[in-house]
Write a protein that binds this DNA or RNA. Structure first.
Lengths: 218, 218
DNA sequence: TTATAATATGAACACTTTGTATATTATTAT
DNA sequence: ATAATAATATACAAAGTGTTCATATTATAA
């Protein structure tokens, strides 16, 4: 998690700086935060900041990178386990327990501050762009695996890239709403609802008991 | 569109300023753009800027507000027409022609610059937040109308608020990808794919020809 | 066309923030 | 204990901000 190769003072300093930045961003927004704000909050000299980071954006991006890497590696690990387990199961059923989606909601709950900052788009383009990239690359892998399992013969009716970005967008949309409204449902419930809408579509979600029109094709 | 109550010079000045800002943001990112950059590009005196706008953010937000208002009013108009037309049709079929979703893709294509700026999250929190709000409020209205038509009796299995944010997120996700990759499909095709995924779910999109598992419920 | 009201401009100003340099002190690792 | 590393205070130049003011230009309506 935190780099052990660093001097103890340096580790402490960086931790204080990123915590101060997070708090200040949530208080008054990224743009309004100055370096002096950060170091004053962290109770450090202003010059100390420049010993560790180039500027405000550098600090934020490095902090986000840490969180993203941690999530990515843990999800990747979980994902491998799942794809093994599900080899012996009906594959396109929404997997209920230990799904990567559930994991994302849990991770977001544990790191709510940084997730809020990321999803609000603070720090502009680069941050949100990087997150969307991660989410849709992951979705691509996930979907192309499922697709190969199920449709060795048929071409998909919609390009995978499009599906992946639909998937990433909807996940980020639900995450954002969930965090901004104070996480009114537990992660498991959010994940369940997400899977339901994703796999079965709005038609099912809106009219749960009618199965009549499903066979039709547009 | 542009306020007729303004002096001709003032209209020209504001237009030049916003065009300059858009171009500069796309060139080097919101944060890096200074007021002097803007006025130099627009070939205006720096003090002139402050005659019209408080700061950089004010200029951007006003420009976005204009675009958003225009879209909102045009969609609202279209939406009324549709809901009348569809009263006499099977209501939960994805409506093919003249759908509000198609309209959004068209509007995005016509105003690609400002849409890119918005969706990249330039100008931070307020902008993206406002857009998500508009999108999900619209989705709320759209969905609750459909829901009432179809399910006067049953409670929806998923809260409308959640569905709306799922919907908004997926639309914004697809829009973003589409614009950032140079609009590789025509608006009509994007809208069609969006409707397909939204209403029928990934299951249908990924395995278009298998209708076997659809009846099941998780 | 002309009067006058509204806009645009350049120069100057105080102020904030940034990023760097330097000399000094404090802490860590071994 | 000591050599290396990190933190600090102070100072500085550069860039950007937002405002004021006197002056010039342009639009509008009588």
């Amino acid at each position: 998690m935190t780099d052990k190769s660093l001097d103890r003072r340096a580790r402490r300093t960086r931790k204080l700086l990123s915590e101060a930045l997070f708090a200040l961003i949530l208080e008054k927004g990224y743009d309004a935060v100055t370096i002096e704000d950060i170091t004053r909050r962290a109770d450090l000299g202003r010059t100390t900041f420049y010993l560790h980071y180039r500027d405000k954006e550098d600090l934020l991006l490095q902090s986000i990178e840490e969180t993203a890497d941690e999530l990515a590696s843990r999800v990747a690990h979980l994902y491998e386990e799942i794809s093994q387990t599900e080899m012996n199961q009906p594959p396109s059923e929404p997997s209920a327990s230990a799904s990567p989606v559930l994991f994302v909601f849990q991770h977001a709950a544990e790191n709510a501050d940084i997730y809020r900052i990321i999803l609000r788009g603070e720090g502009a383009y680069q941050v949100m762009h990087r997150i969307r990239e991660i989410a849709s690359r992951y979705a691509m892998g996930f979907l192309s695996a499922r697709f190969k399992e199920n449709n060795a013969n048929n071409a998909p009716s919609i390009p995978l890239e499009v599906i992946a970005n639909f998937f990433a967008g909807s996940l980020l949309g639900m995450l954002t709403w969930w965090l901004e409204s104070g996480m009114p449902y537990p992660p498991a419930e959010m994940a369940h609802m997400f899977r339901q809408m994703t796999f079965l579509g709005l038609q099912q979600a809106v009219q749960p008991l009618s199965e009549a029109r499903l066979g039709k094709k547009g």
